[in-house]
Design a protein around this nucleic acid. Structure first.
Ligand SMILES: [Mn+2]
Ligand SMILES: [Mn+2]
Ligand SMILES: [Zn+2]
Ligand SMILES: [Zn+2]
Lengths: 132, 132
DNA sequence: AAGTAGATTAGAATTGTTTTAAAGTAAAAA
DNA sequence: TTTTTACTTTAAAACAATTCTAATCTACTT
């Protein structure tokens, strides 16, 4: 499916800029990227586009489910007085974080690691919403 | 152990500001907080301290292991063309992210959730370093 | 007590993201 | 097809989080 069709189906107007972005993003290979990354790619390809447009488009794409964004713990740097290795519950409504001990969770099956690498740690976030 | 001693043991000069911060942070109850949170607490308590000092102190505290900070995926907003639920390998050296499917990991024992809450999802990050 | 390395501070700088408001464009209406 | 309308792009400004600068201050050493 071409980018124009894809955008229309998602309920977005296929503007020149959105098509250019979709052409880069939806070539079949998944990728992780920042607004700046994408902007560089576009500029490099000889096109011109304002960074604000990149943000506008990516936020639209995200809202209609064409892309996602990685769960980060909010926009700011969060410190923790707990210096032991531990994991977190994350209250989605309030943003509150609660610790739990690594011993309270047990990972049985482990994914195959990329060749030449070993695990240096694992971070688990369990998101919470109110029951009922 | 009082804050002054604690700071000395950690190899930090016990300045007025660091003692005030340590008094708040190391009262026995673990907490998650931002620089701004802490700054507000300090101002609220009638003391004066520059936000730059808060950052300086927290970064020092972190360097000597008195506090930690939550693993976030770098400082910028990371988008993902993969809109399915999935987890990530995180290359600690390069910052590169690689997807793995939820089916490739299996969590056997689950921590007890806070009363009145249910899980709305889980995010797992496996950190990677080069072997050898 | 004096000297020195290290710490604090206000304010400037930097970075990442959003907002503003004017000009441009795609879709709908006529 | 023209006109109209709503939506989009853009440069520039605003905003938010964090770090840097350089002057002043303070804790430790001698
Ligand atoms: Mn970037
Ligand atoms: Mn805050
Ligand atoms: Zn914690
Ligand atoms: Zn991913």
């Amino acid at each position: 499916m071409d980018s124009k069709t894809k955008l229309r189906k998602a309920g977005l107007r296929p503007t020149k800029q959105r098509i250019a972005i979709a052409d880069i993003l939806f070539n079949g290979i998944n990728r992780h990227f920042t607004a700046e990354n994408l902007h560089n790619d576009i500029i490099q390809s000889g096109k011109q586009m304002s960074l604000a447009t990149i943000y506008n488009c990516l936020n639209k794409f995200k809202n209609v489910g064409l892309i996602s964004h990685l769960q980060s713990l909010g926009e700011t740097y969060v410190f923790d007085t707990n210096v032991e290795h531990h994991h977190h519950f994350f209250n989605e409504k309030t943003g509150e974080l609660i610790d739990f001990r690594p011993g309270d969770i047990h990972v049985k099956k482990f994914p195959k690691l990329p060749k030449g690498y070993k695990s240096s740690g694992i971070d688990i976030i369990i998101k919470l919403i109110e029951k009922n």
